[in-house]
Amino acid sequence: MVDTQAPEKLADKPPVTVGLFVTCLVDLFRPRIGFAAVELLERAGCRVAVPKAQTCCGQPAYNSGDNAHARAVAATLLDAFDGFDYVVAPSGSCAGMIRDHIPELFADDPVLADRAVALGRKTYELTSFLVDVMGMPTAIARYQGTVTYHDSCSGLRELGVKDQPRRLLKGVDGLTLTELPSAEICCGFGGTFCVKYPEISNKMVSEKTAAIADTGADTLLAGDLGCLLNMAGKMSRESRPIRAFHVAEILAGMGDGPAIGEAGEDLSAFTDGQKG
């Protein structure tokens, strides 16, 4: 948005329609990540819509053993994303839920089983969609800083998201990536885990933020807002001068906005766009 370099349209691909699954955390806490995702998808040549009737992927209930509520919430997605070529979420956790677990939830449902499988098949995490499906070679943006990257567990292990964000970050001018040795170890968020077992979660996130600080990076990036809220919140409590962004924000050239937990968000920037 702020970065106005020419979008790298991929002319040889037919325009595909993408339904953006915003995710509940992005919708509620940090809408700018949703706008960053739209920006990146449009640069990749997609036409993006945001179905109105989406709320959550159902994971809080599913991972609490409450399948009835998980099914009820997940069912709203089956209708909401009908007709789109793809569904993309700026989260490996929610994309993994839709791709792998919603089909499990409806496996015995004679009416909805096939639709759940079809929804799962067309659902992707944002960076993996940009690279693996749209063939985006890299992202063109600018961010001055040394960043380190945390691989959120679901994206990494359920969806194989590892190289895609790094490949896209290579195109970001001014950015140096310093790898986090414990990048593949959980940050201790775990959805409801962090409030059910706060002491253990605290131990895990403390080890994580210490490791982040050891890299010497001034910025932390990741692909899931849940993990980012956890790590950024801990770094803020520890008064560590490290900023945290969702990787999509940096890739979309929105790294000059407030980092997670910083004041000063200007929402009018998102509604004054050329759209509408």
Binding site: F29, P31, R32, E199, S236
Partner: peptide, 17 residues
Amino acid sequence: GWTDHRDMAAPSGKTFQ
């Protein structure tokens, strides 16, 4: 459970939707 150990980022005030 959250804020005993870490800060909570404030939401932007408006939802993406």
